[in-house]
Design a protein around this nucleic acid. Structure first.
Length: 572
RNA sequence: GGGCGCGUCGCAUAGCUGGAUAUUGCACCGGCCUCCUAAGCCGGGUUUCGUGGGUUCGAAUCCUGCCGCGCCCGCCA
């Protein structure tokens, strides 16, 4: 819509002057129309009534009459001036691919490698990967980054458990703690296998102080960059991480780079930063020698406004390493975006302030609200989770039931492929289409919904377009699109497609992937209506104009799907 | 106690730099396959936009009081 606004503004300015409106306060009153039938842009004329000494409706009429547009028309409807772009202008925006926009590093997921991926963590991954895809679709050079927490307490517990507990002990502890060990097709995956040790150690920790002591010793050594401990940690978590990445890969989520937290201890950068922070105006030292920044003057409120970055024993904290991590990330890209759960808001703010104290620019951050189960928050430690592997299985098998019914003609291999694509896409879309700050309560029925306004609906439209393309065969499209013939649902479809780049960019700029998801759904609706009204393959042969439009829609649907992580299969 | 976020039809959800009848889906009712995929299309809604005030020509949108829910306020990660 931004492109249209810019195209229209000059004529509007002239018109306003002609009519006698002073100033340019009206510029940001120019908004997008609520309904397609009202055109593309609308200008409410209430405020002009006083200046022109007439009714708002008359003002609208005067202004509309004074507008001369060669890229569309302006019509007064009641107290509004509705501006509609011409088909020519819209069609001109169809072929335009995204321009190159520079680099951005998007860090997302970064889950502790202590157990299988669960649906609580999935929101971060889906949201993050959707951003990665949307930024790529918009022309950015994106690095998808995973921060591996390879030295904290979580990994410490995992490592200790694997080195000190045997299988019988683990089973015994879990039985006592009433954490069920479910037999699933994924039991042999290392993330599923090893999480039992993690859970068992957590149970044991509460009654056996030796566990805590053992773990603490390991963690301390890791914080001192002890090479032996770090490699034992890696041996413990890497298979878990690999298992998690398999799950993510199944969802179409992959990463370009992995950075280990311990790196910043090993290379000494954390130490350097801690020294630098001492010269901050905000710097303070606690009784036991711990260092902090006093953030009250920076607008941080609450019980404690002190941000500790160095313990009394001189060691660093997670947040301190995060500072070094951000310093490092700036060497990799010109823009940084983090996807974080809302529980990290304060922490993120503190880190941001500390970074500014170090003259390092803070990253951009998108926060999302948690996914809860009906009976509370998910926790790997307590074992009340829905694993992503199981959710995806369930989604696939539900999709399979539907495909089997509809497409009895397909081979079982094909059915498997389609249902897997549908299951994964539906699962992702059900998360991506909700605005990030809205809390989600996990319900199987919602998570697996295959209804309209979901991924399968969009995939279906795309598959339709593919089917038409196959039926049409080789078509000579050199005549190009004749915009003068466009009316009705065909015109609406072209209009929708013309705004793809605008929608993508504005969705990115407002940190709301759900907006682009909604556009994509609307595109599918428009294509279905076009399909109803305009036949491509007819008894008389292929209608070339309709074929051209159908092919453009196929392309837009495919690109749109890829931008939100829906798999654009060609048949379903 | 304080900070941040959320509260929109039975359920879910959009809109929230103030503007035209509050979007969409589910569920519910009815219609459409001798024609390119009916996972589709068409029609059917009396919604206190949590609630009380305020600002405005105009408030779901801005300000403010209150209520409910979530997250956070560790020398944890």
């Amino acid at each position: 819509m931004q492109a249209l606004v810019e195209a229209v503004l000059p004529s509007l300015e002239v018109a306003m002057k002609t009519v006698g409106i002073k100033g340019d306060f009206w510029r940001n009153m120019l908004g997008r129309s609520k309904e397609a039938s009202q055109g593309d842009l609308a200008l409410p004329c209430f405020p002009f009534a006083k200046q022109l000494d007439c009714s708002p409706a008359d003002a609208a009429k005067k202004i509309a009459d004074a507008i001369e547009l060669d890229i569309g028309d302006a019509i007064a409807v009641g107290p509004y001036v509705n501006i509609r772009a011409s088909m020519d202008w819209l069609a001109g925006h169809l072929s335009k691919g995204p321009s190159s926009k520079g680099t951005i590093l998007i860090e997302h997921t970064s889950a502790n490698p202590n157990g299988p991926f669960h649906v609580g963590r999935a929101r971060n991954a889906v949201l993050g990967d959707t951003f990665v895809r949307m930024y790529r679709a918009a022309g950015y050079d994106v690095t998808a980054e995973y921060y591996v927490d390879d030295m904290g307490k979580q990994v410490g517990i995992l490592c200790w458990a694997l080195e000190n507990l045997d299988e019988n002990k683990v089973r015994e502890l879990l039985a006592e703690g009433e954490i069920p060990i479910e037999d699933s097709p994924h039991s042999s995956k290392e993330d599923h296998a090893r999480v039992l040790w993690y859970q068992a150690a957590n149970l044991l920790k509460s009654k056996d102080p030796a566990v805590d002591a053992g773990v603490t010793e390991l963690v301390q050594l890791s914080e001192e960059a002890d090479a032996d401990v770090l490699s034992r940690f890696e041996a413990a978590y890497q298979p878990v991480l690999d298992g998690m990445l398999v799950t993510l890969g199944r969802m179409g989520i992959s990463f370009d780079s992995f950075t280990k937290e311990s790196r910043f201890i090993v290379d000494g950068s954390v130490e350097v930063l801690m020294d630098q922070l001492q010269s901050s105006q905000l710097h303070g030292v606690a009784e036991n020698g711990a260092h902090f920044l006093e953030l009250e003057s920076k607008g941080v409120k609450g019980k404690s406004t002190q941000f500790f970055y160095r313990r009394g024993d001189g060691s660093s904290l997670y947040a301190t390493r995060d500072l070094a991590y951000h310093q490092y990330k700036w060497t990799q890209s010109t823009r940084l975006l983090n996807i974080l759960g809302e529980d990290h808001k304060l922490q993120s703010k503190q880190v941001g302030i500390a970074l500014e104290e170090l003259s390092i620019q803070p990253p951009e951050v998108v926060f999302y609200a948690f996914t809860k189960l009906d009976d509370g928050k998910m926790s790997t430690r307590r074992g009340n989770v829905v694993f992503m592997d199981d959710l995806l299985d369930e989604a696939q098998s539900r999709a399979l039931e539907t495909v089997k019914e509809i497409r009895a003609d397909l081979s079982s291999e094909k059915l498997q492929q389609i249902s897997e694509a549908v299951g994964v896409s539906a699962t992702r879309f059900n998360i991506a289409r909700i605005s990030p700050e809205k809390g989600i309560t996990f319900r199987w029925a919602d998570a697996l919904s295959l209804e309209a306004d979901s991924a399968p609906f969009i995939m279906y439209s795309h598959a339709r377009a593919c089917s038409i393309q196959r039926k049409a065969g080789d078509v000579d499209t050199s005549v190009g699109l004749d915009t003068s013939l466009l009316t009705g649902s065909a015109a609406e479809l072209v209009r929708r497609m013309a705004y793809m780049n605008d929608e993508l960019q504005s969705s990115i700029d407002s940190n709301g992937p759900h907006q682009f998801c909604a556009w994509l759904s609307a595109l599918a609706v428009d294509y279905n209506r076009f399909y109803r009204d305009n036949h491509v393959v007819t008894d008389e042969g292929v209608n070339v104009q309709n074929f051209i439009i159908s092919e453009m829609a196929r392309d837009h649907l495919r690109r749109g799907c890829e931008a939100v992580g829906i798999i654009p299969i060609e048949e379903m």
